[in-house]
């Protein structure tokens, strides 16, 4: 192996960090081309989705495909938006994702704070139950939850869509791991200043936990927006479908309307792409919280 090779993810023989900017070597070009090619392959399907969506409907099945549509058209989106239930599905998805995220942040922060900073009988046993249940595949609880929801009349309601997702034990685990790192003196100081127990949580602990709340909030929102199996089984009328389930129904209804379907897929991908680009650093850092060495 020559010294010019920069691949394989191992540092160079001379610590380049000590020398400032590292020199560009021939091996770098090879490495960059390989990763670029892989990245293009990964992103190609999404690009293909967008260009199909903005293609004139009659040109969608044209071969060879137009990689850069000469006459982009919004006709597919116009047809998508003219579908009577699209607005309702979008609203349902927003209501579910926003409510679950807000409720879970509140509930998980409270519980995480108690697990990290409060002493009470049964604390370790309870926390062990939460952590243990993170290992259980969701399908084990799917059927009992469904029967439970039908017994209390929550099938096809927002309650049915929202309530089961709030309790996800991962949120409590994440918040506890973070709250543990907060210094206890802050809580003592608040108590000396005469703050109530809830006041300490709201005014001192919650603001300090913002980084962890941001990570949990973003991941919960994305997870809920993309969720499919639970909304599929818990709703049975077209009006109560979330956007993901609605799109799946559209796919069944008009399987060959590629332009319309890709417009629908693009439409559902836009909010999540915006969230991703806005909070990119949380995605690219946040996942490591509590994942390793924990």
């Amino acid at each position: 192996m020559s010294a010019s090779s920069s691949s394989l993810g191992v540092p160079a023989r001379v610590s380049t960090r000590a020398l400032g900017a590292r020199r560009f070597r021939p091996g770098d070009a090879v490495a960059l081309s390989v990763v670029t090619l892989l990245a293009i392959t990964s992103l190609m399907p999404l690009y293909w989705m967008v260009i199909t969506a903005i293609q004139e409907p009659t040109l969608v099945v044209k071969l060879p495909p137009e990689w850069l549509p000469k006459n982009p058209s919004m006709a597919n989106f116009a047809e998508l938006l003219s579908r009577p239930l699209l607005g309702r599905w979008t609203l349902n998805s927003i209501v579910v994702a926003v409510t679950v995220t807000a409720a879970q942040l509140f509930v998980a922060a409270l519980a995480g704070y108690a697990f990290a900073k409060k002493d009470f009988a049964g604390r370790n046993l309870l926390f062990w139950l939460y952590v243990g249940s993170m290992m259980i595949p969701g399908q084990v609880t799917l059927i009992p939850r469904y029967i439970l929801m039908s017994k209390v009349g929550f099938i096809n309601t927002y309650y049915g869509l929202i309530l089961p997702s709030i309790s996800a034990p991962f949120g409590v685990f994440l918040m506890k791991q973070f709250m543990q790192t907060l210094p206890g003196e802050i809580i003592d100081a608040g108590r000396i200043d005469g703050a109530s127990e809830f006041g300490i949580f709201r005014l001192l602990v919650a603001p300090l936990a913002k980084p962890a709340l941001a990570v949990l909030g973003i991941f919960t929102f994305v997870g809920e927006w993309n969720d499919f199996l639970w909304p599929l089984v818990i709703t049975n009328s077209s009006e109560m479908r979330t956007l993901q389930v609605g799109l799946a129904m559209l796919q069944e209804e008009v399987p060959m309307a590629f332009g319309l379907l890709m417009a629908g897929a693009t439409y559902a991908a836009i909010p999540i792409t915006v969230v991703f680009l806005m909070f990119q650093r949380y995605f690219l850092k946040g996942l490591t919280v509590g994942a390793l060495k924990g």
């Binding site: 509930v107 998980a108 519980a111 704070y113 108690a114 939460y130 249940s133 309530l163 309790s167």
Partner: peptide, 24 residues
């Protein structure tokens, strides 16, 4: 206070995790 802070989470957790796992 420890219990008070746990309860909202635990009620949901018991209802949608513990009970369903055993019931399943």
């Amino acid at each position: 206070w420890g219990y008070a802070f746990i309860i909202p989470s635990f009620v949901l957790f018991a209802f949608f995790f513990l009970v369903p796992v055993i019931w399943g």
